[in-house]
Design a binder for these strands. Structure first.
Lengths: 120, 120
DNA sequence: TTAATAATTAACTATATTGTTAATTAAATA
DNA sequence: TATTTAATTAACAATATAGTTAATTATTAA
């Protein structure tokens, strides 16, 4: 019974779910080019401000963005991308591809063994 | 207005949403070690057979698994992992990290320019 | 041919997500 | 001080997701 593991997977659950939303991925792309305020981000979309705000909250909760109050205007919150969740996702992908490779390797060796046996 | 793009992103939406479920990710890990029947996969979980069946359907719909009828027993469907959606995900991650790197590069150059100017 | 098995689909419930508008909080400006 | 402005939270509606048990389909085995 594998079921849900002990739960280092829970982070991945939330990171993947967060990134599954196209608006949030677009926000991430925008922030990849540099920090922006919530308002400036909102201007790039036809969504209401609360909608953007809640998308940003989701991204904050998984640690993919951080927010700091602007030093010039304390009403403004400036958002910035944080790499860690993306790193974890990349590592998971690499791990999975490693598992997959082992299987292909084993399969190749199996074929080799069979054709080798036949060749005798 | 960025909004949802033309929609090569729709594939990513569905791939990420599919992988956000821990049961489905576990299924993917199991299949990374080799093909298995729906029943054999189900034995690894404490979920009902219909639940597993629908998880497999989701994975089939995004092209992450394919199913073939067993040649020995036509009642059995054997599932196998397909790499393409994972490749697309990896490529998106790389693209994003590229965008991110440009920003860091630009920032580093900015710092260089400023400290260079100050050094004069 | 009847019963058992593998898998899926149907019907339903519970919960989560995403959007909206309205209200709230806090800071800047007239 | 009164009014904007930036952002968030509250309250609600619509839709999607994931689980269950029951029913269905197709194949194998008794």
């Amino acid at each position: 019974m594998a079921d849900q593991a002990l739960s280092p997977t829970a982070d991945l659950d939330r990171t993947l779910a967060a990134l599954a939303d196209p608006t949030r991925r677009q926000i991430v792309h925008l922030l990849a080019t540099g920090p922006r305020s919530a308002g400036a981000l909102g201007q790039e979309f036809t969504l209401s401000a609360p909608a953007i705000s809640r998308h940003l909250k989701v991204l904050r909760q998984i640690g993919l963005v951080s927010a700091v109050t602007d030093t010039q205007d304390n009403r403004v919150r400036v958002y910035q991308l944080q790499p860690q969740p993306l790193t974890e996702l990349a590592q998971w992908l690499e791990q999975l591809q490693g598992e997959w490779q082992e299987q292909l390797q084993a399969f190749a060796e199996h074929v080799e063994a069979v054709s080798g046996a036949r060749a005798q």
